[in-house]
């Protein structure tokens, strides 16, 4: 595991459910013991989903998200990839996928196990999209699912799109982040057009009764920020 770029420290290691978990600058999480890469909330074809309603956003979000995805997959070369739900922005998404994007997706899937966990945006996925479709799955002591469940331990989930906001001496920045207390991790959304929900939101409270550390994705590396340092929007 070496960083490809000079000055860039692409990864940060934490412990999760008794395993090592490597948080990646791309927003993915790598479990070395299982040679498995986890990604959450890709929201492919969000742009075209909005276009149907008259908001003609640049139609490049899927290829942008795919570019980030293939970068981390080719860099780490995992045996298995698990997408934690909301991989497509709506159920019609897979059929709107452009030719080039379909090819790229095929290339990153090829030669490894690919698992789609279903989410609230993509309750069903067509066969032609490849891989296995599941509602949730277990890896050792960890359960992987889309929506985090209160009270569960040893869970990795997405759905909430956490972002952390930090203000230091009048300067503010708001970045995507992982939230973890060592037993549970909520992953950031990778999708190019996915917004975020502030980590200070009340939704997170019951999920982390003892608090959490936020791992904010900076430009060059990941920063571990204490809950107390985070601000509301």
């Amino acid at each position: 595991m070496t960083a490809l770029l000079k000055n860039k420290q692409t990864t940060t290691e934490i412990g999760l459910g008794g395993m090592a978990a490597i948080l990646d600058l791309s927003g993915a999480m790598y479990l070395p013991d299982e040679d498995t890469l986890l990604v959450a909330d890709l929201h492919f074809e969000k742009g075209s989903s909005y276009a149907r309603r008259g908001m003609l956003l640049p139609p490049y979000d899927t290829r942008e998200t795919l570019a980030a995805l293939s970068e981390v997959i080719f860099r780490l070369g995992p045996r298995r990839v698990v997408a934690l739900g909301d991989s497509f922005h709506d159920v019609g998404g897979p059929d709107r996928l452009g030719g080039e994007e379909r090819e790229t997706l095929g290339a990153v899937q090829s030669g490894r196990d690919w698992v789609w966990v279903t989410g609230n945006h993509d309750r069903s996925l067509p066969d032609h999209i490849g891989g296995t479709v599941v509602e949730d799955m277990e890896i050792r002591d960890l359960i992987l699912r889309h929506e985090p469940k209160e009270g569960a331990t040893g869970e990795v989930a997405g759905h909430l799109h956490p972002v952390g906001k930090v203000v230091m001496r009048g300067r503010a920045t708001r970045r995507r982040c992982f939230l973890s207390d060592g037993a549970r991790c909520i992953m950031p959304a990778i999708g190019a057009y996915t917004g975020g929900l502030n980590a200070c939101d009340a939704v997170y409270k019951p999920l982390f009764p003892k608090g959490f550390t936020a791992y904010l994705i900076g430009t060059e590396r990941i920063f571990a920020i204490a809950r107390a340092m985070l601000c509301r929007d």
């Binding site: 930090v166 203000v167 230091m168 300067r171 920045t173 430009t219 590396r221 920020i225 204490a226 340092m229």
Partner: peptide
């Protein structure tokens, strides 16, 4: 300064 990393590094160091 628009440099996000600078702000984040400072917040991390505070902890």
């Amino acid at each position: 300064s628009d440099d996000a990393d600078e702000i984040l590094a400072e917040a991390e160091a505070t902890l």
